[in-house]
Design a protein around this nucleic acid. Structure first.
Lengths: 203, 203
DNA sequence: GTCTATAAGCGGATAGAC
DNA sequence: GTCTATCCGCTTATAGAC
């Protein structure tokens, strides 16, 4: 039974890095230190192994995000805490982040439904409440998506962003991203009084 | 030579939908109405065919986006025009959008460099100028990424967003996304005077 | 539960006729 | 330039010894 967990853990990394079709049962077995046929003692087939890996990767993730919203303070403080939390979680756990990207691209409706219900539903609903509190006159669904979009996209497109002008290493740090996103959300593009975000405005 | 273009056009759709590894040379040949070996009369191998397809998919795309920024009006008007343009382009051309997602996930540095230089560099630089004009005190790189992030992410996560509470079909229309994003960028979360974005605030 | 051996099929790519 | 036929490696999955 410990072997099973070892397989799941190793699988998450490989599937996240290379994608379902590019990872063979031999690759997975090698990563655990066994032979490919031994995998079938723990999982019916490759697809089942993949689905179980994804489930395993997201165990407890929903709670972490949902909890980030429950620390009862002012709405502004909860927003800042939540944005920071998203930025940190997605930066520190690139495997989960990449699995989500891959599932959105390739997942069928059943798989996306499972991901939605088990991972995103709870934090999304909590963010809806926060959104209505912060901006009752806006559409809560669109605003909730926008908040997540700002943080997640900055991280997701990292490989491309690194190549574009003006990039600096600190732009990959979760604290820097969170600061920028919060400021933008709270004040809009042209904040009359808001200072620079990490020291310099130009470049 | 017409066959070559037919191959490229068919390949874009298949690679965008299923990904490189999931599309076989036989699949590609079937889509064009020829046999697999005939593909090798036009392309050295599968990887070359894929790279040419990506190049073909993005012909002229950079110009379209860059031009959206050159219509010399006020900075606010250019922003609105640009956001609308991104939303429309990415909604109407899901193949290119998915190819970009896949390249960001799986592309090596050389391929990302090519994508960056040939597609994103020009519009990114123009947006940098706009960003400095709109918000001289902000970091232009971060703001430029945020503008694109807001629009693109709304569309990219469509399959997941459809399953989350509060979603409505009009949230997939580029005009609706553009309106929401522009309002958010210009006024921030809590716009004191901004009306609802598509008729109703709650739900 | 893990191993070796192996089945059965699909993948990219080539040879050579037309 | 396209075809049929074919090579060969790699894939998933199973059988059966230990």
């Amino acid at each position: 039974m410990d072997t099973r967990n070892a397989i799941l853990t190793a699988s998450i990394s490989l599937f996240a890095r290379d994608g379902y079709a590019q990872v063979s049962m031999r690759d997975l077995a090698n990563a655990v230190g066994i032979r490919a046929p031994a995998l079938y003692n723990h999982f019916k087939d490759k697809e089942t192994l993949y689905l179980e890996s994804v489930r395993h990767a997201f165990r407890g993730k929903a709670d972490a995000l949902a909890q980030a919203l429950s620390s009862g303070a002012s709405a502004h403080e909860r927003l800042e805490h939540y944005v920071s939390c998203i930025a940190t979680v997605f930066t520190d756990d690139p495997d989960s982040r990449r699995l989500i990207q891959r599932e959105i691209l390739d997942g069928n409706e059943a798989r996306l439904r499972a991901l939605s219900d088990q991972v995103f539903l709870a934090p999304f609903c909590n963010t809806l409440v926060l959104a209505k509190e912060l901006a009752p006159e806006r559409n809560a669904h669109l605003l909730t998506v926008s908040i997540a979009a700002l943080v997640v996209h900055h991280i997701d497109i990292g490989p491309l962003r690194r190549l574009l002008p003006g990039h600096r290493p600190e732009h990959e740090e979760p604290a820097c991203i969170a600061r920028h996103v919060c400021s933008l959300l709270l004040h809009g593009i042209s904040s009359a009084q808001k200072p620079n975000e990490q020291g310099v405005s130009g470049t």
